[in-house]
Nucleic acid binder design. Structure first.
Lengths: 344, 344
DNA sequence: GTGAAAGCGCTAACAG
DNA sequence: CTGTTAGCGCTTTCAC
């Protein structure tokens, strides 16, 4: 069995209380005892039992992160990077990270309730916020610490960090218009996601600002996966042969759209411009390299984790609603429109 | 504060022990009391405190998974899918999943020690096994339950599941040779990884079986990332212009190599064949679609998790060293060699 | 400075 | 069938 404080106390002929104090680095203890205890603990190979400590302290030093997956072949590189950011920050602050993978919808709330009411974690991280987000409503009702990556239409104040997607898509749309594109199709994210609306708004605003009427027939809704982008790409290009640009709401869909575009015999960047959002590493290595909007995913992971740990530790956040400006990354998947008259 | 069993006991004028038994579904309890207690618990909104239970039972009902990342921009779609498999299986069996993200090497063993000796988890999942794997040596020494995804040269018996990479690469190499390729370059995984050796062996064996001498100049070592594949692709094709096929040890590197190949003006599948390993969803959507070896990643995640949970619960494994046969997936990135004489 | 004692919330012997 | 008691390993008053 593992060595306990009791074992050390017995060996040294002192009380557990003293051992605890010595190890805990309290001030009201003789320097000599402290050193003695520490040395013996070390020699005996003592390691604290975190469960016991948690029960006593009534806190878990653990945060939870529930990943909303979409099916078994869920493999968004975006999430690995986000997870790495969260995990590294948590580790640095000596927190454990509990991860759940759950298909959004299917019994998702059960997991949240379990985390909260069975006191498995001290705080939660929420991602892929939805327009009406019952997770957020629930956590607010329970007064449970959390930080969200993303806003929501929930009528309440809560700490979040978000990327200004609207600005991102506005920039990318403007960029395409500047290149001479006039018929720009748009592939949205599922409409229940909050960012789907911000991005769509960015698209519409850019069109209007350039006196291009918004044609709702050119707005499609995807699932954020490659195959979804692929299917919609085929649909768009076979149905509307005057479309010269397709704006996808994330890189994965853009990659799928590229495949469709090529299969139909179009030259990407020449005949049809395609853009994404996120700037996952694969965007650079795609053929052609993908014009996209960069989100500093790893840093976002670190920051939302940092915000949550501050919240959990009752340190007030200097800024609890952060909006980051994303950066437009222009690559070869968007070039001058063939039929374009940008310089005419 | 949260409702405890004590609260229920007080309200009902019975003892906590009875409450515990009623809730725990023990047999030696009156049906009537049981129902009464359950109903009251429900009404009062009682939820068990898992920490207290863990301390008493001396088990955490939690398993650990330490992801060996390589830097901040770690974004291998492979891992998301694996994690989803592990997470879903753990959830179904009512286990929590503790995830750590740690750069391999940098203080990695500290995390393992922490998990084990501070009793944070009941068992561990190890991935990306290494030829000489100190994690495995450590866990065996500590007699701590674990299951590895991958073999290792460690002289010891331990439960693992692995994919027969050697066979996979053999098949893919043979396939390329059948297409007429004679100069096949190979991009290996980092040599400390155990599978790097199996795969390399598969490559060499296939060459020898076809009387093609192994040219060590054509064997390169990558980092399993797109950019690593890209750099090596450039190097290989500029230095050896008689190479007609490049076999990469994973899909990400193959994708990077594709980019390099195209930049140098070669037609993939026509001038140069390129192959990967894993069959991540992006392999299908690459241009051209990537010939690769499929690993059932999600299912592997589920299965290693299942094996671990059995181990943790002292249920003997019927088969504790599983080797899966991977499947060759032929797509357009490998075609008849231009200079080939397959049918001559 | 140190020890004794209580208690975090739960489960598990052992009586009765 | 149910209550009493003890205890998981630790932290934290409160005395001395």
């Amino acid at each position: 069995m593992a060595i306990t404080q009791q074992d050390i106390a017995n060996k040294l002929g002192i009380s557990v209380a003293t051992v605890s104090r010595a190890l805990g680095g309290y001030s009201d203890i003789a320097k000599s005892t402290q050193e003695h205890v520490k040395k013996t603990a070390q020699e005996m190979g003592y390691r604290p039992n975190v469960i016991a400590r948690r029960l006593q302290k009534q806190q878990t030093d653990t945060i939870g992160f529930i990943i909303p997956t979409h099916g078994p072949r869920f493999s968004d590189p975006y999430f690995t990077e986000l997870l790495t950011g969260i995990g590294n920050e948590a580790a640095e602050q000596d927190y454990d990270l509990l991860v759940s993978t759950r298909a959004a919808g299917s019994g998702e709330m059960k997991i949240y309730q379990r985390m909260v009411s069975e006191q498995r974690v001290d705080g939660l991280l929420i991602v892929r916020t939805r327009q009406d987000d019952q997770r957020i409503r629930y956590l607010i009702k329970e007064n449970f610490p959390f930080v969200a990556f993303g806003r929501s239409d929930t009528n309440a104040n809560y700490p979040y960090l978000d990327v200004d997607s609207q600005s991102g898509i506005y920039q990318i749309t403007q960029h395409l218009i500047d290149l001479g594109h006039k018929k720009l199709a748009y592939i949205s994210a599922p409409k229940q996601l909050q960012f789907a609306h911000h991005r769509l708004t960015g698209y519409k605003q850019a069109l209007l600002a350039n006196n291009i009427p918004v044609d709702t027939d050119l707005i499609f809704c995807g699932e954020l996966t490659e195959s979804s982008g692929y299917k919609l790409g085929l649909k768009i290009l076979t149905k509307y042969n005057d479309v010269t640009a397709i704006i996808a709401s994330n890189d994965l869909m853009a990659l799928g759209t590229m495949k469709a575009t090529r299969e139909l015999g179009y030259e990407i960047g020449e005949d049809i411009a395609i853009t994404g959002f996120d700037d996952v590493p694969l965007a650079t290595h795609a053929h052609p390299p993908l014009t996209t909007v960069r989100q500093p995913i790893y840093e976002i992971g670190r920051q939302i984790c940092r915000m949550l740990l501050q919240t959990v530790n009752n340190t007030p956040l200097e800024n609890d609603q952060v909006l980051l400006k994303p950066e437009l990354i222009i690559r070869e998947s968007s070039k001058l429109s063939k039929g374009g008259d940008a310089y005419s």
